[in-house]
Design a protein around this nucleic acid. Structure first.
Length: 830
RNA sequence: GCCGGGAUGGCGGAAUUGGUAGACGCACGGGACUCAAAAUCCCGCGGUGGCGACACCAUGUGGGUUCGAUUCCCACUCCCGGCACCA
């Protein structure tokens, strides 16, 4: 009977050891431990899935590796409401809304511990706990005081049958997910955060961040700073009579002021006041506006839908020519972006061109981009920069000069000026759901909007609430919650029933980790100053935009409040790829999860961890397949059996180094040191754990191949012990349980966790002979073996003397010889 | 539609700065051990042609740069993520 490794036997001991090794909150500790933080957290009502496991495993392997290199690591973890099923996702999975119970949390802890994660449990942060609500609400009041949070009308998806607001995810092909009713847009008052106030800083400070370039690029594009000109198209006289908005005309923004002479129409959003006015006494237009209001509010939808428009019958004047320009109502103009109105230049904007073609609006060429202009079909060159034509005094100007001239003239006419525009919009944080932090605001008939006084915080969620998924906010149906007293006049007041977006929770939870039990403030600024910024933040690439912008914004706001001194939450960011299953990201809302429970029960925690690391590099998406984990289990058994079959006992490194190496021993030694180098490099440089593991596998394969020599003692036992010791150390970050067991078998007394990472010795890793491929005209023709330190002339001489090479160049003239030292020879012949 | 990323054997992936394409593992085939099976150990394994030595083809598609391209450039196809209420 072959010996078998029982993966669970040693687990409690390993967990205890790691628990003892963790670093506690200690501003006086020196040197400062690295602060690692994981962005995605499990939720207690559901189950961990392999997506989570991978995330933590990456962190954990890294933490173990760093500890071996003498660095301390703080790797906290908490229970975050993001990752918790909102009512919608809960329903989709047939799970009732979660309750945060001690049992649930204990269950999650136990699951995480069975994976051997090195988590600092003292820093548990449950963002849906009233103690966390309290600080969310505390921040809300600060934001209110500073004027960062404000209330305005926003557009949401409305299911007319369930009478409730739907998330974009719940709108399927324009219909409600439960009712199949056509979803409408509805304007409701909502709370917003003025994130745009920080747009410039959010954009400019990206450059210095040690974040992946792709994430920084996505954020730059998302913020979308553009320089342009804002100006007024004055109302035509009869329009001016009808418009009573107190404005002299229609405000528009453009980045292409150089094309202003090509304006042949203007377009406004369906919600624009001008459209509302025009619809009076125009039934057809009113119907069209009503249609535009229905349908989803997703940007992707807006971008792909058919561009439709209708003339409003109202006119504005061209600011320079005073020609009448008709205003259209168009479904592609967004009220929430810019002014909700745009100038139409069909000659040099692809969308306007298509629009003009469709509705017979005039097209006018005013830019010459060097290609012949035809109004029959759009060409990509039409919107390229060029020189102005048909533009009166601007003719002949290049783009920048034309924009400057136009802006100057508009300014002189008091009609407009240069302005910066952002794509970024303010952050709407209102949710009409039960699950979330209640917004601490009161509505008093006498005093209007009144904040809940700080002493009354936290406003907590009522316990007995029926989640019906219909009829709007569940909190609105709880009179005990809604009915309150005005803190100013003491009269009756109505409580705000919106809850906060859970992105609010995730925007600052990592600060709370540093001081998780503080009941006087969200956290102590001194402690936060010690830990922040986070040395390394790890999270899924799907968070590249929203979460990572909101949390940066939150950091900047807290800095302005004087709570912290850092400008950015995380110095370095690592975005792991997602775990893909059945062609889509593994997530609880999609339900395509794989349970680590079963994996651990069947193959052991080591195998589950190792497999999630081996299957793909962590920055890349991992296509989850159940096959393959057996190979990993086989590998672990192979390592274990090698130690059982070749017991050697502990040995001092000095002794092993002094041994006279036989050729067989030398080969193993060389492979060992090459492996140490590969594992160390791939670990710290790129975090490519999959290649680390394959390198260790190769080493084990070499050991098995040398079994005869080992049996014959050609490889001295003391030498072998040294190899085994290093093998355990290399394996420790990936398979801690097995490593601990082997460490004990070797008779080591020191804790494995504290044993330093093996040292790479370049001399010992050096090959005596190397194989050089020889190419002729770039095609591989032969390989030659030469001493590793050969000179170029010698290698070339040997290459030319090779029989196969001779045959390949026979009758031809060698015109160039290329030698890449230690890599290859290429002979160019004619 | 826009922004970001990806595509390499039957499969997951490797090739770190432009230098031997396919490391390592899975699956599959063969062998050893066994009464037999499992487990284990060893060997083979991109395609086409050839008994073979070997030759040719091959990194999503089509072009380009280079002595040499999975890697750089241009154009395209498909897939994944994000697009502001999944979090």
């Amino acid at each position: 009977m072959e010996p078998h490794y029982h993966p669970r036997a040693i687990e409690p001991q390993v967990q205890k050891e790691w628990a003892e090794a963790r670093v506690f909150n200690a501003p006086d500790a020196s040197p400062k431990p690295k602060y690692y933080c994981v962005s995605m957290l499990p939720y207690p009502s559901g189950k961990l899935h392999m997506g989570h496991v991978r995330n933590y495993t990456i962190n954990d392997a890294l933490a173990r590796f760093l500890r071996k290199r003498g660095m301390n690591v703080l790797m906290p973890m908490g229970w975050d409401a993001f990752g918790l099923p909102a009512e919608n996702a809960a329903m989709a999975n047939g799970v009732a809304p979660a309750k945060w119970t001690r049992e649930n949390i204990a269950y999650m802890k136990q699951q995480c511990q069975s994976m051997g994660w090195s988590i600092d449990w003292s820093r548990e942060v449950a963002t849906c706990d009233p103690s966390y609500y309290r600080w969310n609400q505390w921040f809300f009041l600060r934001l209110w005081e500073k004027g960062i949070v404000y209330k305005k009308t926003g557009v949401v998806n409305w299911d007319p049958v369930d009478m409730t607001v739907l998330a974009n995810e719940q709108v399927i092909d324009g219909r409600g997910w439960r009712t199949n009713a056509i979803v409408e847009k509805r304007e409701i008052p909502m709370w917003y955060m003025k994130i745009t106030q920080y747009a410039d800083e959010l954009l400019d400070s990206l450059d210095a961040l040690g974040w992946p370039e792709q994430v920084k690029q996505m954020q730059r594009n998302w913020i979308g700073r553009s320089y342009g000109v804002e100006f007024t198209l004055p109302y035509a006289p009869e329009t001016a009579k009808r418009m009573d908005d107190g404005k002299p005309g229609l405000n528009v923004f453009t980045t292409r002021a150089d094309t202003i002479m090509g304006v042949t129409f203007a377009a406004v959003a369906a919600e624009h006041p001008l459209a509302t006015e025009a619809a009076k006494g125009n039934a057809e237009l009113a119907t069209f506006i009503e249609q535009c209001r229905k349908g989803g509010v997703q940007e992707a939808e807006l971008a792909t839908m058919e561009k439709k428009g209708m003339p409003s019958g109202l006119y504005v004047l061209h600011p320079f020519t005073n020609e009448k320009v008709e205003v259209w109502v168009a479904n592609y103009v967004l009220m929430g972006y810019g002014e909700g109105a745009v100038m139409g230049v069909p000659g040099h904007d692809e969308r306007d061109f298509a629009f003009a073609k469709k509705y017979g609006v005039a097209i006018k060429q005013v830019i010459d981009s060097g290609v012949p202009y035809s109004m029959d079909a759009w060409k990509p060159e039409y919107d390229a920069p060029g020189r102005n034509v048909n533009s009166g005094k601007y003719d002949g100007l290049a783009q920048d000069a034309a924009i400057d001239a136009v802006a100057k003239d508009l300014h002189a006419a008091s009609l407009g000026m240069k302005r910066v525009q952002y794509r970024l919009r303010d952050w709407g944080i209102s949710r009409q759901r039960y699950w979330g932090t209640p917004i601490p605001m009161l509505y008093c008939e006498k005093d209007g909007i009144v904040p809940v006084p700080e002493k009354d915080l936290p406003v907590i969620l009522p316990e007995k609430v029926e989640i019906t998924l219909t009829g709007g906010s569940p909190l609105g149906r709880v009179p005990e919650f809604v009915n309150a007293t005005c803190s100013k006049c003491g009269g009756p007041a109505r409580r705000e029933t919106d809850t906060m977006d859970t992105f609010v929770d995730s925007s600052w939870y990592f600060y709370r980790y540093t001081d998780a039990h503080n009941d006087r403030a969200p956290f102590d600024g001194k402690i936060a100053q010690y830990w922040f910024p986070i040395d390394q933040y790890i999270g899924g690439v799907e968070h590249a935009i929203l979460h990572l912008i909101y949390s940066r914004f939150w950091t900047k706001f807290m800095r302005d409040l004087g709570m912290i001194t850092n400008d950015e939450p995380a110095e370095r960011l690592f975005t792991q790829g997602m775990v893909i299953k059945d062609g889509a990201k593994m997530s609880k809302s999609l339900g395509n999860t794989v349970s680590p429970d079963e994996m651990v029960a069947r193959y052991g925690a080591d195998a589950a961890r190792l497999y999630s690391l081996f299957a793909a590099p962590p920055d890349r998406d991992l296509d989850w397949q159940d096959s393959g984990i057996e190979g990993i289990q086989r590998f672990l058994g192979r390592v274990y059996r090698f130690f059982v079959k070749n017991p050697t006992g502990a040995v001092s490194p000095a002794l092993a180094g002094a041994l006279q190496a036989t050729p067989e021993a030398r080969a193993i030694q060389r492979k060992l040191h090459q492996t140490i180098k590969r594992v160390s490099d791939d670990f710290q440089g790129r975090w490519h754990f999959n290649t680390c593991i394959s390198a260790i596998m190769e080493l084990v394969n070499v050991l098995y191949a040398a079994e005869d020599a080992i049996a014959k003692k050609t490889v001295p036992p003391a030498f072998l012990a040294e190899v085994q010791r290093n093998l355990v150390l290399l394996l420790a970050p990936f398979a801690p349980y097995l490593a601990h067991e082997l460490w004990e078998m070797l008779g080591e007394k020191e804790a494995l966790l504290r044993a330093p990472w093996p040292k790479y010795d370049a001399e010992l890793a050096k090959e005596e002979e190397i194989e050089i491929p020889v190419q002729v005209n770039g095609k591989l023709r032969s390989r030659i073996t030469v001493p590793a330190d050969s000179e170029e002339a010698f290698v070339l001489e040997r290459a030319l003397a090779d029989e196969k090479v001779k045959a390949a160049i026979a009758g031809k003239q060698v015109i160039k010889k290329i030698y890449v030292p230690g890599k290859l020879v290429n002979l160019v012949v004619k």
